[in-house]
C-alpha cells in the first residue's frame, strides 16, 4: 500500500460519460501514487420506491427496473475494470443498493478511502435537479476529500499516454 498522500481512491460510477473520464483519471492517479482503487455503482432503489409509492410502477415493474439498473451497473463496472487492466491497475468493484449519496459516503468510510473521485457535475437543468443531484449531495456529505474530474480531452490524453 502507498505511504503517500493518497492510499485508497473510491470512484463513484453512475454510468455517465463524465464518470468514465473520472475513471481514467483515477487509474492514472492510482498508478502514479501507488494507491489502491475501488469503484462503486449504486442501484438507486429510492427512486424506484418513489415511483411505486406514486403508483406509476407496479411491484413487478419496480423489480424489473431494479434488475435492469443492476445489470447496467455491472456493465459499467466491467468496462471500468478493463480501463484499469489496460494500464496495469487492479480495480476492486462494488455494487450496492440504496439511496445513492448515502451509500457512497458510507462505503467510502467503510473502505477507508481517503479520496473520492467522481465525474463532473451535470449542469442544473431544473429546480428538481438541484434537490435530487446525487453527485452534489455526495460532494457535500463526504467525510474525505472529493475530486471532481474535469476536462475530458486532457484526461483522455493523459490516460492514453500512460504506458
Amino acid at each position: 500500500m502507498s505511504q503517500g498522500p493518497v492510499r485508497k481512491i473510491l470512484l463513484f460510477v453512475d454510468g455517465s460519460e463524465e464518470c468514465i473520464t473520472a475513471a481514467q483519471y483515477a487509474v492514472v492517479l492510482a498508478r502514479t501514487l501507488g494507491a489502491e482503487l475501488a469503484a462503486l455503482y449504486v442501484v438507486n432503489v429510492s427512486v424506484l420506491n418513489e415511483l411505486f409509492k406514486a403508483r406509476i410502477f407496479i411491484k413487478m415493474e419496480q423489480m424489473d427496473y431494479e434488475h435492469d439498473l443492476e445489470q447496467d451497473g455491472r456493465r459499467y463496472l466491467n468496462y471500468i475494470s478493463e480501463l484499469g487492466r489496460a494500464k496495469g491497475v487492479s480495480i476492486e468493484t462494488h455494487i450496492e443498493k440504496g439511496v445513492v449519496n448515502e451509500v457512497v459516503v458510507e462505503k467510502a468510510r467503510i473502505l477507508g478511502a481517503d479520496l473520492l473521485a467522481m465525474g463532473e457535475l451535470e449542469p442544473i437543468k431544473s429546480r428538481s435537479d438541484a434537490f435530487h443531484d446525487e453527485s452534489e449531495l455526495i460532494l457535500r456529505k463526504a467525510h474525505c476529500s472529493v475530486l471532481v474530474v474535469k476536462d475530458a480531452d486532457y484526461i483522455e490524453r493523459l490516460y492514453q499516454a500512460m504506458e
Binding site: 454510468g15 427512486v47 415511483l51 406514486a54 406509476i56 427496473y65 439498473l69 447496467d72 428538481s128
Partner: peptide
Amino acid sequence: AAGPNVQVLAQIARLTH
C-alpha cells in the same frame, strides 16, 4: 434506458404532486 427512463418518470411524479 432504464436509468434515464426512471429519472423521467420520477420528474413527472414530482411535478404532478
